[in-house]
Structures are given as structure tokens and as C-alpha cells.
Design a protein around this nucleic acid. Structure first.
Lengths: 199, 199
DNA sequence: TCCCGATGTATCGTCCCGATACATCGACCG
DNA sequence: CGGTCGATGTATCGGGACGATACATCGGGA
């Protein structure tokens, strides 16, 4: 998930971890920002996989355990996406497996990079997500109907509010889907499928 | 968090892990259910801490690494809360530190056990949560105002929807708080503070 | 009878998080 | 001129939660 988001951001321009985190928070909807404990390991994984590279020479690897803990100049590290990284990102964008629908955050990241996504894949993702949320809504609704008498006021309120939220999300997704259907080619931008290519 | 929820459920009646998971999903708002990878380690921690006990004799500990992987009868295990567990739960309920407000799930669990919670603590928790969500809302709102022109339609929609959600949550909390203020002693039930005790 | 799905317990590797430590830089102030 | 304070910036650690998976039991239908 995080890797996907990082690749998407680095595709736009090279960045520091710090900056990356801020952009990430912005893209993710502002409410939940990513922690450094997630970000740096993710960057390390991406670097190890050759999907990003750094301008930092090699001050990273050596450092034996007995050295005083990193009291050498620790400069900024700018991360840049590689050609493999771009390939991988395009792959992730176009595949959009069903796991993208269950996790709201992964869906959010996908949505944030929709301008890199082909119109048919966009529709697939939106509908998949709607299906997931609809299932949640139905489960919640029947659970609420089943347990209406057994539960106290607070639990009931919590479930009512939750049901209202998912219900609104379904409607929101439906609006997005409708608008997508009305005007499929809206702003694909730089997707891997130019509109002239009819496969 | 999970420990808190488990103790709260076991307080009502002893249960299997499987059953516990279903109840948990119900209490948590139905949308996100807990996985066994969380549940069983949590039960193990609680058992190690002496907060719950099992009816299972001791088929658990031995089993050296070279034995064929657990081909002995593995029966159901009923977990029961201990006296220490009840104490701990009452402690967690009444303390309700500020960390309860940041995490929506922890807040949800607290809310689900509000009938075990004293009225003043209830109010404190609700207001703390509202403050957290208000901050989220304000941050999101200003971020949206700042970036309105730079972002594409999809990201904007995502943020608009997110803002709408937190806004609704604030209003929902405000209604709960108002109703709580109007009628503080509503249904404390079995809280550790009987209404006659004026401290 | 035999298999299949629901029930049920348990672990593994992985991801993510909060807390923390450490380092650099500019600004403001004495 | 120097000091410190907050923003910027990199990095790790322990722990919690998750998905996937394995294993076991039991009832019912082909």
C-alpha cells in the first residue's frame, strides 16, 4: 500500500522522506498521516528492490555496531523513482486487484492517482469498492435489525452512525461512478493507454 | 485496546475465542472484525497476566518443537474473566486516558461499554473525542482550502467526502454530549460509582 | 460413506504505528 | 557573537494488528 503511494508521489517529482510524508498525508485525505516508522522501512524496501534510488553516496550501509551511534554528518536524502519503479507503478495501477477494495486506505491511494489510471480500470475500482461497502452496509444493517433490542443506547448509536457513514459512502461512490460513466475519458492525463490506442 | 474489549465482553459471560470474535465485530460497529492473529495473542497475554483463566487443563504449554505439529486432540477453550481482570477493566474504564480519543476504534470500544462507565467519565470521553475529530476537521478543511486548485478532481472528491464524514461525526458527538448533559444518570447500570456515593 | 462447510484453535511473516534518539538549520534574543 | 528553540530531517525499536495458513472437529447432504 505505502509502496504504491510512495511510487505515485515520486513519479511526480523526487522528494525527501519528510516531504513525502506531508504529501502523503495530503493525498490520504488529511485525516491519517503516515508515521516515519512506516515510511523509512518502506523506502528501504523500495531501494532494496531497485524501484527508487538516492543521491546519497553510500553513507548508509557500513556503520558497525560498536561505532558511536551515527555521529557523522547525516544529510538529506532525496529519493528518485527509477525506470523499474515506474514500470512497477504502472503495473500496480492497472492491475488493481480485488484487495484494493477491502482496505479503504488502499482505495484512497488508488483514487488519488486516478489520473494515471485508465478509464476502464477506474470504473472497475470504483465498482469494486462500492460492492465492498455495500456488503458492509448490508451486514451492518441486518446486524442492527437483529440486535436492536439486546443492545444499549450507546452501542446502538455507534452502529447507527456507522451505518449512516457507509450508506453515505455508497451514495458518494455511486455519484462518482455515474459521472465516470457519463464522461469516461475525462482526465486520464498520462495513463499508459493513450485514447488513440484501441488495443 | 483489544484487551480492553475482550475484558468487557468476558465480563458479561465466559466465551470461546470464536464467539468472542463475533461479538467483537458486533460491538466494534460491524464494519471491521478482529482477526485471529490479533485475538489469540491477546488472549494469551491476558492469560499470562492472570486477567482471564481457561477451563482447559494444561494441554497448551508443553509440545516441544520436534513433535509432529499438534496432532493431539485440541478441544474448545472457554475463557473466563478473573477478579483481577474485573479490577483491571474497571480501572481502564474509569481512567480513560487521552489516548482513547485519537484512535477511533478505542473510542468505539469505550462507547460500547459506556453502561459500565460513570457519567462524568462518559462526558470526558465524548468531549475528548469531539475535540480530536474537530481538529481533524479543521486540518482537513484548511488543507482543502489551500490545495483546492492544485489537486485533481478525484483527490478533491476524496477530501470532500472525508471532510463531510468528520463533520458529521462532530455533529453526532455533539448530539450525544447534549443528551448526556440533559440526562447524566441515564443508564449507568453497574458502574463502579453508585449514584448515591458523592465521593 | 464420504466429503464439505461451519466451527474452532493457533502460528507465521509482514506491515504499520507511536515513541524515541539524533542531527541540521535558521531565527530570534541577550 | 553565541545560545537555544522550533522546524526540518533521518533512522530504529518494540509491539500490536493483520492476512494467510494449518490443523482439528462435527453435522448434514450427496
Amino acid at each position: 500500500m505505502l509502496e504504491f503511494a510512495i511510487l505515485g508521489l515520486l513519479q511526480q517529482s523526487p522528494m525527501h522522506g519528510y516531504e513525502l510524508r506531508k504529501q502523503l498525508a495530503e493525498v490520504l485525505g488529511g485525516l491519517r498521516s503516515i508515521s516515519y516508522g512506516s515510511l523509512y522501512p518502506a523506502l528501504k524496501r523500495l531501494h532494496a528492490a531497485g524501484l527508487v534510488c538516492t543521491d546519497e553516496p553510500d553513507r548508509r550501509a557500513p556503520l558497525p555496531a560498536d561505532a558511536p551511534p551515527l555521529t557523522g554528518r547525516r544529510g538529506k536524502v532525496v529519493y528518485t523513482i527509477t525506470a523499474e519503479g515506474k514500470e512497477r507503478f504502472a503495473e500496480l495501477v492497472s492491475q488493481a486487484g480485488p484487495e484494493a477494495y477491502d482496505d479503504g486506505r488502499l482505495f484512497g491511494v488508488h483514487l488519488a492517482f486516478f489520473r494515471h489510471t485508465a478509464a476502464d480500470v477506474r470504473l472497475r475500482i470504483l465498482e469494486g469498492r462500492r460492492r465492498t461497502v455495500e456488503r458492509q452496509r448490508d451486514g451492518l444493517r441486518s446486524s442492527l435489525a437483529r440486535t436492536r433490542e439486546r443492545l444499549d443506547r450507546y452501542t446502538l448509536e455507534l452502529q447507527r452512525h456507522g451505518l449512516d457513514s457507509v450508506d453515505r459512502e455508497v451514495r458518494w461512490l455511486s455519484e462518482l461512478i455515474d459521472s465516470e460513466r457519463r464522461d469516461p475519458g475525462r482526465q486520464t492525463g498520462e495513463g499508459p493507454e493513450p485514447p488513440s490506442g484501441t488495443d
